[in-house]
Write a protein that binds this DNA or RNA. Structure first.
Lengths: 328, 328
DNA sequence: CTGAAAGCGCTAACAG
DNA sequence: CTGTTAGCGCTTTCAG
C-alpha cells in the first residue's frame, strides 16, 4: 500500500493535522517541523491523495471544457486551439480539466452531476437547457465563442464584427467592388455579426450588398468548392470571396484554380481563423486571425473569477487581426 | 447541500448499503426496493458522489493520455485523432480521461502520483524514465505509436513498414525510378521502419537506394519546402518525393508548384497520415492512411486488459492503407 | 504553532 | 435480499 498521512505522522513524530498543513500550506508550520515532515514523506515516498483531499475539502478543483458544436471536436483546429489554451491555463491554476464533446453530452452531464466538476466552459452553440441545467446544479458556466443574451453568464468572444470589417476593407482597398461571402453553418450569433459588418462596410463605400452576395455551404472543402463554382460561373462573377473559415476558403481556392482562374489576379480569397491551412495551400491564404489562445485563457480566468465569487465582465471581446498573404 | 446516500436511505426506508447497491448494481436488489430507492432519489435530486465513491472503493477508474512528442499536442492532427478516439473509447467504458502534453510532464506526473490515475497511454516518444516511474508506482502503461524494446509493456503501432511499402510500390508501378524521401523529425523507431521498407522495396526492384535519397527537415511546411527545393534543383532531380507526413508533403507540393513543376506529371508527391490537409491542397495528396481511430481504441483496450489483469499482446500492429489521389 | 477528533459520502465485508 | 459497521485519507474546527 501507498504511504498515508498517518505513516508520515508517525515517522515524523507530528500529528496528521500538521502533516496536512505542511503539504497544503507550508508557511503555517515552523521551519524545523516542515523539514521533519518532508523528510519522513521522502523516505516513505508519500504523496497526498487527491481524492481524499477532495472528499475532505468538499471541493474538487476540477473544471470541464465542453465543445457544443455538432461534429466539432478536438479535430476541429479552431476548437483544438481553444482547448489547448484552456489546458495550459487550467494547469497553471492547479485545476484539473476534463474535456468533452457534444457527442457525449450525456456523459458530460453526468460527470458534472456527480459533483466532480465545479465549473464548465461551454464552447460553441450551447443550448439553453444545458446552461440552465448546470446553473441549477450550482455549477459555474462560462461561454466561449458564443453569446446567450438573457442568460446571466460571462462570455468570451472574438471580435467577429471587427474582424469582418478588416477583411472587407482590405478587399475594397485592393479595388474589389464585387465581393461575395460563403458562410459555413456558423452559429447565428457569429453569422449575424459578420453579416452586419459586411453590409455596413460595403454600404459605407457606396456598394449595395445583400443576400445575393451570400453563398452557403457545409463546412467541408468539397461543399465549399461547389458553392464557389456556382458563384464563379455567374455572368457577373465576384472578384473576391470571403470564406467563413479557412477550410471553406481552401475550397474556394480549389474551385478557382480548377476553373483556370488565377488567385489573386482573377479572384481574391480570404479566410477566417488563420489556421495552419493558410500556409499549406498555394497561394497562401489571407485570413482573419482569431486569437483562440487568448479566448481560452480568458475563459478559464472568467470561470475562476466566478468560482471565487469575484466580479467578472459579462462579455469579453478579443480583438481580431488580418493576416494578409498571397491569396488577396 | 446536496442530498447524500443517507437522505435517500432515510426517505426510502432502506439502509445506506442498499441505496449504494441500487445505484452501483441494480440487479442485486429486489425490484420493489429498487423502485422505492429511485423514487426517493428522484425527489431529493440525489446523484452519487463520485469522489466519495472513489475514496471508498480505492479506485478512480481514471486513465490518462499523455502526448510525449515535443511540440506535438492536440494541435497536431495526428495526435488529435488518436486523442479523439481515446476519448470516445474511454467514455464507452466508463473511465474518466485526463489529457496532458509533454509540455506539462511535471503536472502529468503529479496527477498520476496523487493516485488519481490508474493507467496511462503514452503517445509518441516516451522516455524510459517516464515509463519506469509510472511502473514503479504501479500504474499501468501502454504505448501508442511507439515501441520500447526491453520494456514489458503493450504497444499499439501502425504498420509503418507495410505503409511505406505500399507507397513505394505505388510509385514504382507508376514508372518512377528516382524516388526521394523527406523525413521530418520522426521517432527513430518509425524512421527506421520506413527507411528499411523503402530500401527493401527499391532493391527488390533492382534500384540502388541509400542515404542520398533521404532529405531531412523540420516538421513545418516552410522547412519541408526548402528541403524539397534543394532536392529538386539537383541535376538528377527525383521524379517522386515521399513526405514523412502530410505537412511535409504539402511543403513539397508548394516548392514544386513554385518551381513551375507540374504535379503529378513532373513530380509525384506522396504524404503520410492521410490527414485533412490532403483534401485542402491542389492537387489533392496521395497519402498513406494511418488508422488513428483504431490505434486509440486498441490503446484503451490494452490498458483495460492490463488493469483487469487480463492478457494483452505485447505489440499490436494496425494495418495501413494507401489513398491514391491526384498528386501521384 | 500544534494536536485531538469529528467528519466528508460511499462501499464492502460480514451477518442475518 | 438487506442491514450493520468499520473504514477510505485527508481537512478543519477548536483547544491548548
Amino acid at each position: 500500500m501507498d504511504a498515508t498521512i498517518y505513516d508520515v505522522s508517525r515517522l515524523s513524530g507530528v500529528s496528521t493535522a500538521t502533516v496536512s498543513r505542511t503539504f497544503s500550506d507550508p508557511g503555517r508550520v515552523r521551519e524545523a517541523t516542515r523539514r521533519k515532515v518532508f523528510e519522513a514523506a521522502e523516505i516513505l515516498h508519500y504523496s497526498p491523495n487527491a481524492i481524499a483531499r477532495a472528499m475532505a475539502r468538499q471541493r474538487t478543483d476540477k473544471i470541464a471544457f465542453l465543445i457544443c458544436k455538432k461534429d466539432a471536436t478536438i479535430l476541429d483546429e479552431f476548437y483544438a486551439r481553444i482547448c489547448e489554451s484552456i489546458m495550459r491555463r487550467a494547469i497553471q491554476s492547479d485545476r484539473q480539466l476534463v474535456i468533452s464533446t457534444a457527442a457525449d453530452w450525456a456523459q458530460a452531464a453526468s460527470t458534472a452531476q456527480n459533483k466532480q466538476v465545479e465549473g464548465v466552459i461551454l464552447g460553441g452553440s450551447a443550448q439553453a437547457d444545458m446552461v440552465s441545467e448546470f446553473q441549477s446544479k450550482n455549477i459555474a458556466v462560462v461561454l466561449v465563442n458564443h453569446r446567450m443574451p438573457g442568460f446571466d453568464l460571462p462570455c468570451v468572444v472574438s471580435d467577429e464584427y471587427g474582424g469582418m470589417c478588416l477583411a472587407v476593407e482590405h478587399l475594397l482597398r485592393r479595388g474589389h467592388r464585387s465581393i461575395a461571402m460563403i458562410a459555413g453553418r456558423l452559429s447565428p450569433y457569429i453569422a449575424g455579426e459578420r453579416y452586419n459588418a459586411f453590409l455596413r462596410v460595403m454600404r459605407e463605400h457606396g456598394i449595395e450588398a445583400g443576400a445575393g452576395h451570400i453563398g452557403m455551404c457545409d463546412p467541408t472543402v468539397e461543399s465549399a468548392a461547389s458553392a464557389a463554382r456556382e458563384l464563379l460561373s455567374r455572368e457577373n462573377r465576384p472578384t473576391a470571396i470571403l470564406g467563413g473559415n479557412d477550410v471553406i476558403a481552401a475550397g474556394v481556392l480549389k474551385a478557382a484554380l480548377r476553373l483556370g482562374l488565377r488567385v489573386p489576379e482573377d479572384l481574391a480569397v480570404v479566410g477566417f481563423d488563420d489556421s495552419t491551412i493558410c500556409g499549406m495551400v498555394e497561394p497562401e491564404l489571407t485570413s482573419v486571425h482569431i486569437d483562440c489562445r487568448r479566448i481560452g485563457e480568458l475563459g478559464v480566468d472568467c470561470l475562476h473569477a466566478l468560482l471565487n465569487g469575484e466580479e467578472c465582465p459579462p462579455v469579453t471581446v478579443v480583438p481580431a487581426a488580418l493576416r494578409v498573404r498571397r491569396s488577396s
